[in-house]
Design a protein around this nucleic acid. Sequence first.
DNA 1: TATGAATGAGCTTTCATTCAT
DNA 2: TATGAATGAAAGCTCATTCAT
Lengths: 209, 209, 209, 209
Amino acid sequence: MTDKIHVETSVKDESLIEIRRKQIIRAGVNLFREKGFHRATTREIAKAAGFSIGTLYEYIRTKEDVLYLVCDSIFNEVIDRLSHFPTKPGTIESLKEAIRQYFLLIDNMLDEFTIMYQETKSLPKEAMQYVLSKELEMVAIFQKMIADCVENGVLDLNEKELFLAANHLAVQGQSWAFRKWAMKHRYTIEEYIELQTNLFLNGVLHFRN
Amino acid sequence: MTDKIHVETSVKDESLIEIRRKQIIRAGVNLFREKGFHRATTREIAKAAGFSIGTLYEYIRTKEDVLYLVCDSIFNEVIDRLSHFPTKPGTIESLKEAIRQYFLLIDNMLDEFTIMYQETKSLPKEAMQYVLSKELEMVAIFQKMIADCVENGVLDLNEKELFLAANHLAVQGQSWAFRKWAMKHRYTIEEYIELQTNLFLNGVLHFRN
Amino acid sequence: MTDKIHVETSVKDESLIEIRRKQIIRAGVNLFREKGFHRATTREIAKAAGFSIGTLYEYIRTKEDVLYLVCDSIFNEVIDRLSHFPTKPGTIESLKEAIRQYFLLIDNMLDEFTIMYQETKSLPKEAMQYVLSKELEMVAIFQKMIADCVENGVLDLNEKELFLAANHLAVQGQSWAFRKWAMKHRYTIEEYIELQTNLFLNGVLHFRN
Amino acid sequence: MTDKIHVETSVKDESLIEIRRKQIIRAGVNLFREKGFHRATTREIAKAAGFSIGTLYEYIRTKEDVLYLVCDSIFNEVIDRLSHFPTKPGTIESLKEAIRQYFLLIDNMLDEFTIMYQETKSLPKEAMQYVLSKELEMVAIFQKMIADCVENGVLDLNEKELFLAANHLAVQGQSWAFRKWAMKHRYTIEEYIELQTNLFLNGVLHFRN
DNA sequence: TATGAATGAGCTTTCATTCAT
DNA sequence: TATGAATGAAAGCTCATTCAT
């Protein structure tokens, strides 16, 4: 995996850094959702975070650092949550449950997901590479789950089909975030989960027909 | 459908307007792809279009107009191409062909698609509404094709399943644009089309199992 | 008197020049009144005059030429009108009549007067000198009238008092244009004329008391 | 009276605001006198004020704010000075003294007065209303003085005559500013004051003759 | 550590003027 | 003569970043 980016600080107190960064991230998420990365000003971020512009710059180096912190924090949360489903691996049931948890997670973090996928391109190259590697890490979790099913014999997919299926899941989840404007009048999140799960599982179960 | 937005001009010669707007759109696509809407300057756009900043502003009123022109032109091309498949409607074959054409279209217009979905939020409200309505129009084309299959008895889907399936196609196509960085090392476009088509068709053919 | 400024033209046909200039002046008056000299654009002037921007520049050299043409035309009209009162010079009655005509003239040309006194400073130096000399010419008409009265023995003023009195008249007339916002709710033009005339005549009649 | 306009600031330190605003006003007066409001650039204003363009915009929001600050400051000074004449009200002597002080004040603030009356129209509507209300406030001071004389029986004027007389004073003072180019070769300020005072007092003393 | 005033490069947009047709 | 598309200098304003306190 690409290495984590180090965001430089003038402050030494590690626990203070963590507190401030959480404030910064929360402020960033709210503002970027509202007006996008470019239209949000550092002054606004500092104000929303509850301190002065000077203090903000004690904890970051550039405005893009804020975006990076936001993206990093979102991915970490997603990966963390996906990694801890207490399920029996290698069964259709566990796959269903993972999909469900992932979709619910997205529904809970709509703003964060939207920001992440719309503003990633504004990151500096290095940071973008890192974020993309995180994205792959997330896909890898689905890959692993599906692979377990294949190993268990409940699914029959080759390498290429497997990776496509994992991506498919990742994308269909995200599309709930991006296309909610078109979806929310037609489906509850539960309906959406059920239908998407059906569509997906029927697709992969009969891939070779 | 939401009404088309009128972009004001100081120039009277309609054919000249068309020529210049095409230049502007081409310049916009290239620059927005390269650096995104916010980092591209109007001066750069003018230069890339081959004329002066003053001339640019004879054909648009604000920078956002350029983004709108780009988005509008892309959707018009997509909808135009999708609307003219010479196929027998209501058969799986024709659906396959449509999917294939759509995916190939996206592969040909990777930059345009990427821009459209990443920068739409930077459009002024009215223009955004219009672009979203175009998006729905595109989805509606798939809806119609699938509905024809249902009517013909080759597919069995209810309203909700049908809309979801149509969205599914739209999204999977787009994801070729957004995730090509992760895909291109594993699949050719032809492979991608074949696998996605299989996954989709198997999913919808067995929706109720 | 300072020499008249020559506004250069590419056009040879003198009668055409006159026609176009009249159009330009009318357009200038309307626009300058509405938005001031600086906020009115040459495009707007051309359009209001009924021809293209290119044609406008066939009859003037710079935007300031338009202002000069406007100011020149106004002063010429004022001086022309003031010079042709059919009155017996050297009597209080004729002075009263002149004041009356001057004030009525201003009431008829409110826009023009307002423009002239508010935008004069935007003229190029040479043109400004000329316009100021026209202003003095106007004052000189009043000087002459008052001087006639002095000669006739109906008024008793020395040089300095006489010039001041003439200026006084010029200014009180203009102030009807500038302060109409404060005056119009309290006086009709006829009332204003009567009161100002009284105030002035009583002042000069008893200057030495 | 129309409410004072609030000019927004990003700076919190009130005493610093006052210092900087004074610098801005001084710079504004000098530049507007020299080249007029429209020809003076914000960069020039900032430079003349002694700081950067960025700093200028920490203390104002638009260029028009500078004009407003200038006009407001002038009127406040005028009204302040006029309000504090230590005279016995209701006598011709006190009226003479007030006229004298007002004319001297204008002679001291020639630039300021010229700017104020030539550029007021460039103010945004709200600010213009406010400035005009200040103008009326100034006239009201003269109204009050003359009214005191009427009450004391030393002058005999009705409502309409009184308001006209007060305006007369205001205007004759201003005309020293506007027409100094024509006056200064003929009168010292002291002569001008004496002659204008005579003219005015004789006018009002014999209004009914 | 925290503050916020100061900075100035750089942005979008306007508009007087020109000149080929 | 008349046209109007093209030009680009110059304007107002923003905002990421710094640094003295």
